[in-house]
Design a protein around this nucleic acid. Structure first.
Length: 409
DNA sequence: TCTGGGGTCCTTAGCCCC
DNA sequence: TCTGGGGGCTAAGGACCC
């Protein structure tokens, strides 16, 4: 469901249909003010009352854009400031994840009602196994795909594009053929005519790095890739990735549709309005750090998970990233325990430069009940009380890794 | 005034242990 | 005793995706 967010916003503000609209940024205030002023008559808000991209100040990127906006050359992941130059008159709407999650749930409920074998790939994307669905093979799946589109549109007002193919890799490529509201069928026999002319970048799993390397080796299309021998690809891309590239170019993908999965990690991160210095902005950083830990802890508690690998992520002004992590002997979802372990990680990270972003992650997740049943959850509060009672001091940080945000410990 | 946030998976390297 | 695999685990980085 490409441009899912944009479609959802156009349902709320139909007067913006046909106009360039950008979803992104973080400024909710203007949006809330408009909603407060017009109440439930949002469709009556005059277009000139909406904030415009040229008035945006900040460091955000575009989440999505309507097709009229894309005509100006703006699109997902582009910096807002750059987009403002290309299309200053574009109307700017804030991201409203709660609204998109609502539509996402509706969309997935309709899909699973019609075809229970569904793999969740994010808010606006799923893989569906048509194999055992009644009528799923009629007209190579087109009939069922059209029924699903109609049902989704009737319930949500949203459009979506569908690709039907023998496997997930081909289906993903097929879904791109007919946006935003089409159905495309790709059969095994269509490989040479429909898949091989495509750029390698169209494979789900070939990003900018792999694409640049492929191009440097003279490989532009999937046909070029398919023409290469497997040993040559393995030599140039490694055993795993080389073999995967070869299989993908030949339309081979044996991954099943996975209907259930457990999360592996949860994280919270934030890019600062301005780059912060570990010494000069220590108080501010410390407060943000603690808040990130509290947010991750709240996420874990709300979703019923504990984790034992606590990590931090730093991004410097030059966009280099440093991560540090530490595995605890027992699992936790306690904000103070996370804050403490993350603080220890921070002491091992280079803090001689300003920071652009700070993040906190908890990995090695286990469902809380499972960890409790196995006696793997640490009583962090009791441990802290014991430590303070016994007067156990934290080890002093060495002066070369200072400064730290430890004022809040 | 470039470049978000929340994820997954893979690779490499060091270490321990068998 | 020495050497040579491994497998498992942790840590760090990186590519990629929505």
């Amino acid at each position: 469901m490409d441009a899912f967010y944009a479609s959802a916003e156009l349902l709320r503000y139909p007067q913006l249909k046909g106009l360039p609209v950008i979803i992104g940024g973080g400024r909710r205030a203007e949006d809330e003010a408009l909603k407060a002023r017009y109440g439930d008559r949002l469709h009556e808000i005059p277009t000139e009352a909406f904030p415009q991209l040229k008035d945006y100040v900040g460091r955000g990127v575009i989440t999505t854009a309507t097709y009229p906006a894309r005509a100006f050359g703006v699109g997902s992941a582009m910096g807002m400031m750059k987009a403002a130059k290309l299309c200053p008159q574009a109307i700017l709407l804030p991201v409203d994840f709660a609204r998109y999650r609502h539509f996402s749930r509706q969309f997935k409920a309709i899909v699973t009602a019609m075809a229970p074998q569904m793999e969740d790939r994010g808010v606006d994307e799923v893989y569906i196994d048509f194999t055992h669905v009644e009528g799923g093979q009629d007209d190579h799946g087109r009939s069922l795909a059209l029924q699903m589109q109609a049902a989704i549109h009737a319930a949500t007002g949203l459009t979506c594009s569908v690709g039907v193919a023998p496997n997930k890799q081909l289906a993903k490529m097929a879904s791109e053929f007919n946006k935003p509201n089409g159905v495309s069928i790709v059969l095994e026999s269509d490989l040479q005519t429909m898949i091989w002319p495509l750029a390698c970048r169209k494979i789900n799993g070939v990003g900018p790095k792999a694409d640049a390397k492929l191009q440097a080796l003279g490989i532009q299309t999937l046909g070029d890739l398919a023409a290469k021998e497997l040993p040559w690809l393995v030599e140039n891309f490694g055993r795993s990735y080389g073999a995967w590239l070869h299989a993908s170019s030949w339309g081979r993908d044996s991954r099943p549709v996975v209907t259930e999965s457990e999360p592996v990690s949860m994280s919270r991160e934030t890019t600062f309005d301005r780059d912060l210095h570990a010494v000069r902005d220590k108080a501010e950083l410390g407060a943000i750090f603690t808040e990130l830990c509290q947010m991750v802890a709240a996420d874990l508690q709300r979703k019923g998970y504990v984790g034992r690998t606590i990590g931090i992520k730093l991004r410097y002004p030059d966009f280099r990233i440093a991560t540090r992590d530490h595995s605890l002997p027992l699992y936790t979802q306690d904000a103070a325990a996370i804050r403490h372990a993350a603080g220890q990680c921070l002491k091992r990270a280079p803090l001689d430069q300003r920071l652009r972003l700070l993040g906190v992650r908890v990995g090695g997740l286990l469902p809380l009940e499972q960890a409790l049943a196995q006696g793997l959850v640490g009583d962090w509060q009791a441990m802290r009380q014991a430590q303070s009672r016994l007067g156990v001091a934290e080890p002093k940080a060495d002066p070369y890794t200072l400064p730290l945000f430890d004022d809040l410990d």
